[in-house]
Design a protein around this nucleic acid. Structure first.
Lengths: 161, 161
DNA sequence: ACAATATCATTGGCCGACCAAATATTGCTA
DNA sequence: TAGCAATATTTGGTCGGCCAATGATATTGT
């Protein structure tokens, strides 16, 4: 979503500084997000993955067997997205799913050895991506940006509930 | 793309501060981007649009008749994405396309009156989104964030070329 | 004048992401 | 104990986004 420039110059109303800046952050965030995701996509494609899949694998590697409903909560994505992503990762033998012995509604997910073998390369990919993304940034810049992003994320997750 | 925590604790190597922070910005950016786009999606759905479409309409409103190849360059998205988005907007009578009288390879795009009627509501949507996204931000915060995002975008667009 | 190259847009395919609806199962309450 | 609510997952559909390939047209070089 990006602001239209015509919108802020409605007939008969002066464009003050506040109005001029509305949408500016959203505008910039949208463009950065798209470019970041595209760059991630290019790097991940080198190891046969798509953006988002590496997050899933990393999380499964960290936490071991996990039920899908927990993945939905902790990754913050739609249940159907989790199902389809896992189906694709399963097809590539990177994860395995099995029914819960106690609760037959539940699927439990685990990373496979093949999936685990990718973790090193995944780490290399996002390291390279961050080197690109934050080129020229001092530690102070990174800390400041991380703080601002955290506040944005908090604002956006609050509105979602 | 998000860093795996296991990755930074390789056997036999101490985890220093630098390593700990690798991927952190990318990690945060990924989550903020997703939440921001999801929130944009919800707001835009109220007026029958999808994220990205409002950028297209805004741009066409600002610049009048535009060839598709120029849209590709200025919006920074794939030609096939532009084609398909315009096809959907055309189906909704929000844009119209016609062949260039001089160069038969070229399609020229313009916003329709119906599309133009949406601009006010588009402006309302991104205004509301920015209010949510930047809740609690002082002007200084906004300026600082805008500057940092601009640097990120520049880094990411440089790597793409 | 013709061949080679470049440009423009489209198609097919895949993916993550969401929304809506459906199905199966479990838990809770009267 | 039965009925209902809640939970878990899946399916179908849509969209933006990219990659690869293709066809039509224009430009450039010989």
């Amino acid at each position: 979503m990006e602001p239209s420039r015509t919108a802020t110059s409605a007939p008969g109303s002066d464009v003050c500084d506040d109005e001029q800046r509305v949408g500016e952050i959203g505008h910039a965030l949208f463009r950065v997000a798209r470019a970041h995701r595209a760059a991630a996509g290019r790097l991940l494609r080198e190891i046969g993955l798509y953006p988002g899949q590496e997050v899933m694998l990393g999380r499964l590697a960290d936490h071991g067997d996990t039920r899908q409903s927990r993945l939905v909560l902790e990754l913050g994505i739609d249940p159907s997205t989790v199902t389809k992503m896992l189906q694709r990762l399963e097809r590539q033998d990177l994860v395995e799913r099995r029914p819960d012995p106690v609760d037959r509604r539940v699927s439990v997910v685990a990373i496979t050895a093949k999936g685990r073998d990718l973790l090193g390369r995944i780490e290399d990919s996002w390291r390279r991506l961050d080197e690109i993304t934050c080129a020229g940034f001092e530690d102070e810049d990174r800390v400041r940006l991380a703080g601002l992003l955290e506040r944005l994320e908090h604002n956006l997750s609050t509105c979602q509930e």
